[in-house]
Nucleic acid binder design. Structure first.
Lengths: 179, 179
DNA sequence: AGCAGGTGTTTTACTCGTGAAAGATATTGC
DNA sequence: GCAATATCTTTCACGAGTAAAACACCTGCT
């Protein structure tokens, strides 16, 4: 969030961000807290979702970034190079290297060198890796459906649309993913 | 995101999540990707915002969690115990201890022991700490206003409201913040 | 051919956060 | 009063991510 978050306590109605915003308004009444209400909530949602979603994955012995990597391989259906995976998962090169090492040792992915360009490697899912992803994904989506059940279908569509708008802006603004 | 994200490439229209969802649908046509469209976008927005927002803070030599801690002290206007800060910033005890050590060394916060209960400490902002927060916060909010400028005011209100709804659900569902 | 510079990947050194255990003090029940 | 237990905070050992440098290899120029 923009400016620290946290619940002063379970303060009656509203989410924790509402309480935080109230506190800031009391200290700096002239401040425009509008952006905080959006960005703060996005960050807090993300944090809580991560804690929650880690549960189904942890059950399979995977971290989210590991699952993202496997998922990228599964959904493209192709062999990907480490460079591709860096771009697909928005991770640093070092992180991808470490994850590939781990996942290879666990027999979930395999590597082979490129015949033409011996700098590059090609990574693909093993059968075990593919089965693992295919097994986890439905559980994950079912769990998420439950998490979102408090928001009705129209609300979910609206949310997805608005976040998509914002995302286009952010993705345009923030050239220079990583290295 | 629920299941790996990433841009297959700059695939025409829509954000990167749209491309990811298309890929999944091609591989698992029967999958209900609805939750992914919401949760994936929340996570991706959070990731991008963090990268972006770190810039103004980094300029002041602060990480976001450090700023969150200072912000909690500033907006409550009170002395807080480490325990309070754990709850306010949703961090682990170990993390708060480390941050307090750093921030104390930098002269941004001060500690004193409790007279009654010698287990607890009380932390408050120094003048320098208060000035730093008051200096950064407007910059931060101005930056965020710019980031959100692609979404009109009604959209922002709608977004804040929907995220608030979701947040209430998540906060209710996820008892057991940390330790 | 040979080298200058670019690209793909890994290694290195380091920071930060975490869970579990320890440490220090309060509180409760006998 | 004193052991048993609970609470607040810090320490420890470790895993994971990062930036920057190193490495390995290709490409284009001369």
């Amino acid at each position: 969030m923009t400016a620290g978050n946290g619940p002063a306590a379970a303060s009656g109605a509203g989410d924790t961000l509402a309480a935080v915003v109230r506190q800031w308004k009391a200290v700096h009444p002239d401040l425009d807290t509008g952006p905080m209400e959006v960005i703060g909530r996005i960050n807090r949602c993300a944090a809580l979702l991560q804690q929650a979603e880690d549960a189904p994955l942890r059950h399979a012995g995977l971290t989210r970034p590991e699952f993202d990597l496997l998922g990228a391989l599964r959904r493209t259906g192709l062999e990907l190079t480490p460079g591709d995976l860096i771009r697909e998962t928005f991770s640093s090169g070092a992180a991808v290297t470490k994850r590939l090492k781990q996942l290879t040792e666990r027999g979930l992915v395999e590597r082979r060198g490129d015949t033409r360009d011996r700098r590059v490697a090609h990574v693909r899912l093993t059968d075990a890796g593919r089965d693992l992803v295919d097994g986890i994904l439905p559980e994950q989506l079912a769990y998420e459906t439950g998490v979102l059940s408090g928001v009705d279908d129209d609300g979910q569509r609206e949310l997805a649309a608005l976040l998509g708008e914002l995302l286009v802006q952010l993705e345009g603004r923030l050239r220079t993913p990583r290295g």
